[in-house]
């Protein structure tokens, strides 16, 4: 196993507020790691730093040895990190298929002039991209809806489409921000199997944020816990569920009724 994504003591301040301090992360190839913590702990901020949306105030991030600091989000995506968003950010007025096709744009394979004149290279590549996109959609069981507008899909399927879209960029590391939010227990269960399946099929390394503990405990091999921007614990699901610091962060301090 080798390190894929490495974050070394990254911190970020917004004005005087230190949102995340000294966060370190080491993702080995093929790992499935969970990032949990109460609301406002800084989990999504970590994702935003890893994907170049925010620039950390200090610290360093590397993907397979290449520094990701000060790189534009699309460049980081080309390096091999893809993500989904907590508050779904699909291209709402575009069709399901077009949403996936956007992700192939980095590997478009025909030039601007060919696109402008619809030359043969345009036609063959478009056909190929379309075929690949439909295959990906069928893995997630949303293949029959490719011509629907993304905004008209049910919520659960929108979440799945976000994952498909991220996968289509052919990433090495996939960051999932609350993939099961708004799903019922059955859907969450199916999603768990799906996440494992895509990890194995596409040889991915996955970092996911999730509040649904059945999902986190069920599929993550390792868990990191954030609270108020600090990493308060890390370990296997078993260790985490017994860690007093974690229980305190989630349930509050044990009430003392003796006084």
């Amino acid at each position: 196993m080798s390190t894929v994504l490495h974050a070394n003591k990254i911190s970020i301040e917004f004005g005087g507020l230190k949102a995340v301090s000294d966060f370190s992360l080491n993702l080995e190839s093929g790992e499935l790691v969970g990032l949990i913590g109460p609301n406002g702990a800084g989990k999504t901020t970590v994702f935003n730093m890893l994907t170049g949306v925010y620039l950390p105030t200090s610290g360093d991030i590397t993907l397979e040895g290449k520094s990701l600091l000060k790189k534009q989000p699309h460049v980081i995506n080309h390096y091999g990190i893809a993500r989904t968003f907590q508050n779904i950010r699909l291209f709402k007025e575009m069709t399901v298929l077009e949403n996936v096709l956007i992700s192939y744009h980095a590997h478009v394979g025909y030039n601007f002039v060919s696109g402008l004149l619809h030359l043969p290279s345009f036609k063959s590549r478009e056909k190929e991209m379309r075929k690949n996109a439909l295959e990906l959609l069928s893995i997630f069981h949303i293949e029959g809806k490719q011509d629907e507008l993304a905004k008209n899909m049910p919520y659960g399927e929108q979440r799945k489409l976000e994952i498909v879209r991220a996968l289509a960029t052919k990433p090495k590391v996939l960051l999932l921000d609350e993939p099961a939010a708004g799903m019922n227990p059955q859907e969450t269960h199916d999603l768990m199997n799906l996440i494992r399946f895509i990890r194995d099929t596409f040889k991915l390394t996955i970092l996911l944020i999730e509040h649904d503990m059945s999902l986190v405990m069920g599929i993550c091999e390792r868990i990191l816990v954030l609270d108020y921007g600090q990493t308060i614990a890390s370990g296997t699901p078993d260790q985490i569920s017994k860690n007093p610091m974690v229980i305190k962060a989630y349930l509050g301090e044990e009430a003392d009724f003796s006084a």
């Binding site: 994907t51 949306v53 699309h74 709402k92 956007i102 960029t169």
Partner: peptide, 13 residues
Amino acid sequence: EDEVASGSMGVGS
């Protein structure tokens, strides 16, 4: 549609 999302999907806005 969404500048942040398109950036994360590899499109330099």
